[in-house]
Amino acid sequence: MKLLVCISKTPDTTAKIAFNGENTKLETAGITFIMNPYDEWYALVKAIEIQEKWGGSVSVLHVGPSENDAIIRKALAIGATDAHRIDTEAVSADQVAFQMASFIQQHAFDIIFTGKETIDYNGAEVGGRMAAQLNLPFISFASHLDIVTENEAIVKRDMEGGTETIQVNTPFVISAAKGMAEQRIPNMKGIMTAKSKPLNVVTPQEYSPKISIVSHELPPAKKAVQYIDPENMAELARLLREEAKVI
């Protein structure tokens, strides 16, 4: 099967967040960037598992400048076959989805994986936008994926208070959530072979983004915690009712 995994780059969750003078851009000095965990742990590993069982290839696709190649090489070290990087700064979900879907239209993939969402902007928009442009089914927040035959899959999808089980034929777009696979750490051999795997640079299409960032803000500082005597839970109950007005 021909599988494609879209991988993005995000600041590590523990990163301390600050912005430039105009508050439009993240201050990147001192921040560690990682492959988006949903893309790496679930989408990529699941695609590799399918390839191990059914044969074929796992390509990774990234929209971003060459300074992001380290993340692509990591995906290759974990086990992807080859990589494509669309050579433009990622500025919005609509732009990223448009660039990737335009690329995918030139190739035939059986399953196109994204992560559930990126952990920086938590948009969860790229997968749906691509599916719409490609006119393919989109199954979001999939926690299980079983390939039944080369062109049929059973998917479990998370939703409020439960799951849904779905049958779908290839090709389709799927966004991967926790549960789909187990994280894999690249080994030495993987890291060595990754260096010689193909990384193809793709010229972006002309596009003007549909949104723009006006400004960022840091959330208002929280009031200091009020400690309650563990022997006096009546006081806590009273405060929750009379002061916080939440019960």
């Binding site: 993240l26 920086d120 938590n122 803000e217 959330p219």
Partner: peptide
């Protein structure tokens, strides 16, 4: 909306 694991807020203009 909230961004960066709710460590910041962002204002986004739709064009």
């Amino acid at each position: 909306k909230g961004v960066y694991s709710s460590k910041a807020l962002v204002n986004i203009e739709i064009n």
